[in-house]
Design a protein around this nucleic acid. Structure first.
Lengths: 344, 344
DNA sequence: TGTTAGCACTCTAATTGAACGAGTGCTAAA
DNA sequence: TTTAGCACTCGTTCAATTAGAGTGCTAACA
C-alpha cells in the first residue's frame, strides 16, 4: 500500500509530466506549492515508487516518467471527477440547442466538438443497426439486371446496396414484392430482419414469385451491410501535434489504422456502461501502444446505442477528457432518447 | 533553345533524381551508358542549364536537382509516351473483368488500383450529379415533423437529405406528392431538377397541397447535395513514404488538406480532356508546393463525367503515372459508356 | 527515526573541431 | 571544343569535450 506522501508525489509527477511531456526531476517536484519536502526526500520516495513499478527512468540521469502501471493507478485512484468549466458546457449546450432530427448529424457534430474541446482525436461509433428497426425498404431497378436496394431505419439512417435482379423478374414483380416486404417487415428490428425474410415472407413470396432462389439471394444481399459506415472521426490530425508523434513512422502506422474502419471499430467499441480507459498496451495494438483510449457509451431507453471516445497519447489529460466524455455522452443519451420516443 | 546535348544531360539528371531523390553530380552523369562526355564537360553544361533556370543546387558543393522549370520542360518535351508494361495492363484488365453495375464501385476500385500501381496517392472525383438523371425520388417520414428524402440517379447513386415536414402535411399527402414528382421528373437531368420543381410540378402541387411555401422549401432542400461525397482516395498514406515527407509538419499540412473535401475537389477537378500535369507551386497551395498533381478525365458518350488523378512529390515518375492514368481513364470511359447505354 | 544537506557520479544533449569526400569552377593543355 | 588537373567549398560524420540536469548515497541534523 502506498503512503499518503507517495500518493501526493506520484500525482504531482504524473500531473507535471502530462503538462510538460518532459521527465520530472526531484527538484521541480519539491518546488511545487503543495509539496514541502526537500529534493532529497522526494528522491527517496521516487526510488521507492520506481521499485514498485509506478515510475520509470528514460535513462539513469534523467527525471522520472510514469509507467503504464503508474497511469493506471493515477486513473483508478488519484483522479477526482472534475467539473467541466463553464465555457465547455456552453459549447456543448449550444450544439444541442440546434434542431436535430437526424442521428447521423448528431454523431458528426459530437465527434467535432469532442475533438475541439480536447484537442485530441475523437472517434464516435454510430448506433449499431441492431437497435434500430426498419422504416422502409425500396428496390429500384436501374437496368434489366441491376438494381439498388435501399433501407431506411427509424433513426433516419439510409443504407444502400447494389443487387442483381433475378432472371425473369419484371419491374412489376419487384414492386409487388417490395410492397409485401414493407407491409410485413416494417418496424422489425434490423437484427431480426434477415431471419424474418424466410420465416415471415418466404412462403408468401414463394406463391407469387417464380425465381424463388435468386430472389432470396437478392434479398439477403439487400440486408447485408458493413459496419464501416458507423465510424466517425473528429480532429484526425490533432493527435499528430503531440510530441509523441514527431516520428513520421509512428504517424504512418496510426494513419493506416485510421483507414481500417473495421479495426477502429473493434478497438473502440465498448459495451460496459460508464467510462472505460485503456492505457498503452492495454489496447493490444502496436500502432497505439503509446496511446490511451477513453470511451463512453451513449444509450436510449437504456439500450446501448454506440460509443464515443478519445484517442490521445498515454500522457493524456485524463481528468478533463473523462469529464467531457461523461458530460457529452449523457447529453447525447438525452437527445437520442427524445428523438427515439418521438419516432415511436 | 537548348542543344541536343543539353537535352540529353537534362533528361539524364532528372531521371536520376527521380530515381534516387539525391542531388545528381557530374561524375555520375558521365558514367551513364548513353553519355560519353567527361565530368568536366558535363559540369560546364550543368552550369549553363542552371543559368537558364532548369537546374538548381541545394548548396554550393552538392550536385544539381531539377527546378520547377526543369520538371516542366521535362514533362512537356522530354517524355516519350511510355507503353505500360504487361503486368500493369493485366492488373487493370482484371478489375474491369469483374461485373460492375454500380458507378461508385468502379470509382473506388479505380482509386485503389491507381494507388497500387503507382505507389503514390490517388484521388478520384466521382461523376458529378449534372450528368446523371433522376431515377427515383422518395420521401420517408420518420416522425410527425421530420423525414428523410432519398434520391436515386440512373447511375445507381443514392443521396439522402434530412428535411422538415411542412405543418399540416399528412403521410398520405407526402405519398401523393412523391408520386406526382416521380411521374413528372423521372429521367430529368439532375442539373435541371431544381428548376423543374417550379416550372413543371409547381402548379400541379399548388392544387393539391395546402402549405405550398413550406413544401417547396422542403423539396428544394431535398435536392440540395454536397460535393463532398464525390471524392475518393486510394493509398492515402502512400505519399508519406516518400523522403520528401520526413518532416511531420509537412505530413500534417497535407493530411489537413485531405480532410477538406471541398478544397481537394477544387484542386483536382479538371475539365480539359487529356492529361493535365501541375507541378509544385503551379498548384497554388502551400501544402502541396513540393508535390505534383497529374489528372485525367473520364467521360461517357463524350460527356465529361469526372477526374482521376495522382498526387505525388514533384520528383514523381511522370512517364509511368501518365501512362497508367491514360490507360485507366480510357478503360473507365469504355466501361461507363457501356453502363450508361444499358441504363437508357 | 525521519528528513535534509552535500557531494560524487552518471548520463545526455549540445558544441566543437578535424577528417573526409563529393562536387564544383577555373585554367590550361590536348 | 573537349578534357585533365587542381584548388576550393561545403556538408557530413565522428570523436572529444563540456555543461547541466538529475541521481544515489552518506552523514549530519531535528
Amino acid at each position: 500500500m502506498l503512503t499518503e506522501r507517495q500518493l501526493l508525489i506520484l500525482k504531482a509527477i504524473i500531473d507535471d509530466y502530462i503538462r510538460s511531456a518532459e521527465p520530472v526531476g526531484s527538484r521541480s517536484v519539491s518546488k511545487r506549492e503543495d509539496i514541502s519536502y526537500s529534493p532529497a526526500t522526494i528522491r527517496n520516495e521516487m526510488a521507492d515508487l520506481e521499485e514498485l513499478g509506478f515510475l520509470e527512468k528514460p535513462h539513469s540521469s534523467a527525471g522520472r516518467i510514469p509507467s503504464q502501471k503508474g497511469y493506471r493507478y493515477y486513473v483508478d485512484h488519484l483522479l477526482s471527477p472534475e467539473l467541466l468549466n463553464n465555457s465547455d458546457i456552453v459549447d456543448i449546450k449550444s450544439m444541442f440547442a440546434q434542431k436535430i432530427h437526424e442521428v447521423e448529424q448528431l454523431i458528426e457534430q459530437s465527434a467535432q466538438i469532442l475533438s475541439n474541446l480536447t484537442s485530441y482525436t475523437s472517434i464516435v461509433l454510430g448506433p449499431e443497426v441492431f437497435d434500430t428497426t426498419l422504416k422502409h425498404l425500396q428496390i429500384i431497378p436501374l437496368t434489366k439486371e441491376a438494381a439498388v436496394a435501399i433501407i431506411v431505419t427509424d433513426t433516419g439512417h439510409v443504407e444502400k446496396q447494389a443487387v442483381d435482379i433475378p432472371q425473369g423478374m419484371e419491374v412489376t414483380d419487384i414492386e409487388m414484392m417490395v410492397n409485401i416486404l414493407n407491409e410485413r417487415l416494417k418496424g422489425v428490428s434490423m437484427l431480426e430482419l434477415r431471419g424474418k425474410i424466410f420465416s415471415e415472407v418466404g412462403n408468401v413470396l414463394k406463391m407469387h414469385i417464380s425465381n424463388y432462389k435468386d430472389t432470396m439471394q437478392m434479398l439477403e444481399k439487400s440486408f447485408t451491410h458493413e459496419k464501416n459506415d458507423h465510424v466517425f472521426f473528429g480532429g484526425k490530425t490533432n493527435i499528430f501535434s503531440q510530441p509523441e508523434f514527431r516520428d513520421v513512422e509512428k504517424v504512418r502506422q496510426l494513419l493506416e489504422m485510421f483507414e481500417e474502419k473495421q479495426l477502429v471499430h473493434q478497438i473502440f467499441r465498448s459495451d460496459s456502461s460508464g467510462i472505460t480507459v485503456k492505457i498503452g498496451q492495454e489496447n493490444k495494438l502496436e500502432a497505439i501502444d503509446n496511446c490511451s483510449v477513453i470511451t463512453a457509451t451513449y444509450t436510449a431507453d437504456g439500450k446501448h446505442l454506440g460509443t464515443i471516445g478519445i484517442l490521445g497519447p498515454t500522457r493524456m489529460e485524463y481528468q478533463r477528457v473523462i469529464g467531457v466524455l461523461d458530460y457529452l455522452s449523457k447529453d447525447m443519451t438525452n437527445t437520442l432518447t427524445k428523438l427515439y420516443q418521438r419516432n415511436k
